[in-house]
Design a binder for these strands. Structure first.
Lengths: 110, 110
DNA sequence: TGGGGTACCCACCTCGAGGTGGGTACCCTG
DNA sequence: CAGGGTACCCACCTCGAGGTGGGTACCCCA
C-alpha cells in the first residue's frame, strides 16, 4: 500500500501529464533506453530503433530535448554530424521508467 | 547508469507496449491512484476523478480489469452496486508508477 | 406519477498522433 | 557526374483515442 494520495500526486496537471506521456510514449521509451546505453548519432538512432519513421524520431528527440532529458550536440562540420545523449534528468527518467517496463514485460509473459 | 539493455528490455513487444500505455494513460493513472487508496464504487470513481466521461471511465476500468490490475465486484442487488478495487498486481503497478509521476511533477515545477 | 440515482451500452463525430513521401544543401566516392 | 550518405523540413492523409449525447431497466422518494 503506497497511499500515493498522501504524497500529493495530482496527474490532473497538464504539464505533468505531458511529461509522463513523452517518456512513456512508444518512441520516447525506445529513444531513452537506447541513449541510456550510450551516445548515438541521429542515423545510428534511426538504425538502432527499428521501424521508426524519420518524422517521429525527429519529433521525439525534439520534445525530449525540450524536456531537458536529451542533449543535442551538432558539430559544425559538413556533412552534418549530430550527437544525442541523455542529460542527468534523462538518466533519472530511465531509472524510474525501466522498472515499469520490466514489470510490464514480465506481466505479459505470465 | 542503469544499462537497461543488459536487462533485456524490449519495448518493441506490442503486448508490453499496450500494458505500459494502459497504466500510463491519462485516465488509467487516475483510476489506479484513486483505487490504490481504497475500494470505490463506479459512481464514486466518477465523482472522484473530475472531468472523466462515462465512456472513458468504463473503458479504462474494463481494460485494467482485463489486465488483471483492477478487480470488479458486482453485488447482485437492485439498484446495481459495483465495487472496484486493485489486485496485488494493480498495487504493484502503482508502486512503480507513482515514483515516475512524482518525478514528472517535480520536474515541471522547476 | 415523475424526477433522480445506479451502472452501464451504443452511435456518431472530432481532432490530433503518427505515417508516407517528397524536397533540401552539402559532401565524398566511383 | 551520378549516386549515396548526413540531418533534417514540409504537406498530405489516415485512423483511432476520446468526447458527446442518447437509451436501458430497475428502484426509491416526494
Amino acid at each position: 500500500m503506497s497511499h500515493v494520495r498522501d504524497l500529493q500526486i495530482d496527474t490532473g496537471c497538464p504539464d505533468t501529464r505531458a511529461l509522463v506521456e513523452h517518456v512513456t510514449s512508444k518512441w520516447g521509451v525506445l529513444v531513452l533506453l537506447a541513449l541510456d546505453h550510450r551516445t548515438l548519432r541521429w542515423s545510428e538512432l534511426k538504425r538502432e530503433i527499428a521501424g521508426v519513421s524519420e518524422k517521429m524520431l525527429i519529433q521525439t528527440l525534439q520534445t525530449l530535448e525540450a524536456d531537458r532529458l536529451v542533449r543535442r550536440d551538432a558539430l559544425p562540420v559538413v556533412p552534418p554530424h549530430v550527437e544525442y545523449s541523455l542529460t542527468d534528468d534523462g538518466h533519472r527518467a530511465v531509472e524510474l521508467l525501466a522498472p515499469l517496463v520490466q514489470w510490464a514485460q514480465h506481466q505479459v509473459r505470465s
